[in-house]
Amino acid sequence: MSTAPTTLTSKKSSTSSKILILITYSVFILLLIIPLVQIVIGAFNHGVQSLFQALLRPEALHAMWITLSVVVVVTLLNTLFGVLTAIMLVRGQWLSSRVRRFLNSMIDLPFAVSPVIGGFMIMLLLGPQTVMGAFFSDLGMPIVYAFPGMVLATLFVTFPLMIREIAPVLQEIGTQQEEAASMLGAYSWTTFWKVTWPSIRWGVTYGVVLTVARSLGEFGAVLVVSGNIMNKTQTMTTLVYQDVDNFNIAAANSVALVLAVCSITLLLVMEWAKRRKGVHTHAH
């Protein structure tokens, strides 16, 4: 008697779960696979030679160089500041808990604020018409419409990624291992390298991969700050934007393909880093 309704509901749930799976696959194919295939087809549409021609344009080579530079500098800076900020947030007993809570919520600001607005804030602060902007300009190092501004804008966007990877790990391992090290005679630098670092290094690796991926693909903030000047401040993403704008779809597809290949490689590295992180699982 009691088995009948159970089978009925399970049958019902299996049909509804089939529908859900179907929807998921359709969305996946529609949003990810078809555009990706489109990029590949578009890039090879006029033959391999035109693909290389598009990529070997001076402005394309320059854009790749700029993107690579931004990624390297931003990743280095973000790793350093991210680790320091995370340690300060979790371990910083010298800060009152209220200050730490405030900082903690401020760190997520770039997640909430549109990258374009982030770029705009840098413009308002360091643009050529402002006091600070003029100051740096006079020193011969303009910030906005130049490389430092692009690094700043990308840093703004990627800032939470590293901290949000490391802070939970630090929280989880607690302070006892570090205290044990100090009872055994290790000062803070030794304690960090011998005790803290081995625990957080896979979190840092994951954070680095996320940062590289994010800075590689950043568009809005960089567009506002860089001014998208060809052969000067143009990155790969803003070049794709300009190519599309000029109806040079084949060239846009070629550059987009390079970006897509980088992203897929990063995705694989990310999976590997995630597995190495082992015990530590994630909410996002």
Binding site: Q177, A180, S182, M183, S199
Partner: peptide
């Protein structure tokens, strides 16, 4: 603490897990 010459056994041992 580094210079007090004290051995400390923590409640959850705090062994270096790596």
């Amino acid at each position: 603490p580094q210079e007090r010459g004290i051995g400390f056994v923590f409640q959850h041992y705090a062994l270096f897990k790596h």
